[in-house]
Simulated scan of single mutants.
Amino acid sequence: MADAKVSLQDIAGRLGVSVKTVSGALHGGSIRMSDETRQKIKALADELGYVPNLVARGMRQGFLPILGIVADGLITQPFATEIMRSFDNAARADGLSVVVTNIGGRTIEASVAELQRLMPRTIAYASMYHQVVAIPDSLRGVISLMINCRDEAGVIPSLVPAEHDAAETIVEHLFTHERQKIAFLNLPGLIAARMREDGFRAAHAARGIEINEAWILPATRGPLYADRARSLVREHVAALFSGPARPDAILCGNDRVAMEVYGALRRQGLEIPDDVAIASFDNQVEIAARLDPPLTTMELPHRAIGRRAGEILSGHRKPTQKIDEIPFRLVERASV
């Protein structure tokens, strides 16, 4: 049975090397040694059952092998949890653990203070959707990365979805399928929606195709898109197909809106994609892949964001710019 009390001194004495060399081989660091020495130390540590004293190590270094995340609802959203899965995988590959605290009505300061008691190596802030967050000035040297959101002051490096480019890509995809009369049922009040509308307009301008301004419509009533907000999809679809000028494609703000559009079009006796093509954003697979026909959509880059965040916070890469936009992926299915 392995002895959990084996020390660095024990290993060093057996191999005739310094304790500093053993610590460097097992815990990382800049000390130089041959690969042969490093492998011998690791092999003996495994044989003896050496278990590092993380608390003592943390007291010496000032931190434990922990990455802290202050999460604003992220862990409660099924598709946004892809960020945390990828982040955790990247951290584990480096021998780091992830500790998440959900804000849940508390202040950011209180959430950070809770994590700081665990002596994390660093702390990041993560959001369930792309938004601008006001980080208190007192935390600008504490929170090192914004994940799926932006720092209002533009000081803390941020990883966010490339919303504008995603809209350009999906509109160009519709154009290449000879759909040029596109309606857009967007998500009111969100930064993602504003950027996607800009991309929608840029794609039309690049082709010299005129936009029907009356066809850019909010999917729900109210200043901000929310699941509980009253849907306007059915009445918008009825109006869009009530006159002689009709769209040949509808771009939807997300897959849930697209699901509603499917139902509304069928009430009008219209077929997808023969009468009208449908495209969307998110790639919530439980929706997009199961619609009939399956939905063409832009997949949110949550896995890539989580992986990139893990690499940055583990020290393997640096942010390339203050706001790093991570590209979506076009998922082609049968709705276009």
Rank of each mutant, 00 (worst) to 15 (best):
R85Y: 12
H164L: 14
M259P: 03
G222H: 08
A205I: 08
P244N: 13
V132C: 09
P244Y: 08
I191N: 10
V100D: 01
D274M: 10
A202C: 09
H204W: 11
E235Q: 12
P247I: 05
S97I: 08
A288D: 04
M33P: 01
L313N: 09
R92P: 03
I312C: 04
P319A: 06
Q77S: 15
Y50G: 03
D3A: 11
A289N: 13
A45S: 13
V70D: 11
D137L: 13
A124E: 04
V171A: 06
R140N: 12
S127I: 00
A249N: 08
T320Y: 03
E172N: 15
D292L: 14
G95Y: 02
T220H: 00
I272Q: 08
E178P: 05
R196K: 08
V17W: 03
R85E: 11
I135S: 04
M1E: 15
G28I: 01
R117C: 01
D255C: 08
L159N: 01
I182H: 09
G189W: 07
E152S: 11
I312S: 03
V171N: 07
K181D: 15
A126S: 12
F184W: 09
R121P: 01
E178G: 05
D151T: 11
G62C: 12
A113P: 11
R150M: 15
G222N: 05
N254K: 01
Q77F: 04
T37N: 13
L115W: 10
A113T: 10
K318Y: 07
A43V: 09
A43W: 08
I83D: 06
R57A: 14
S7F: 12
D282V: 02
I83V: 08
R32V: 10
L190R: 03
D3T: 12
I103Y: 07
L330R: 01
G16K: 04
S314P: 14
I216H: 02
G73Y: 07
V276C: 15
S158R: 01
K20D: 09
H27K: 03
L174K: 00
P319W: 00
A206I: 06
I326E: 02
G306A: 02
T21N: 04
I75V: 15
N212M: 11
V100T: 09
P319N: 07
I211E: 05
H302A: 14
M259Y: 13
L232S: 04
A214P: 00
L48M: 15
F175D: 04
R92M: 11
F281C: 03
T107G: 12
D3Y: 11
E36L: 10
P157I: 02
I41N: 03
A71C: 09
A166M: 05
A93D: 14
E168P: 00
T297I: 07
A192M: 08
D151N: 07
A45V: 10
E109F: 09
A134M: 06
R85I: 14
R194Y: 13
L118C: 05
E271R: 15
D274R: 15
G58V: 13
L15G: 05
S127L: 06
A239M: 14
V261D: 01
S97M: 14
L187T: 13
R207Y: 13
R38F: 13
A205L: 13
D165T: 08
V276N: 06
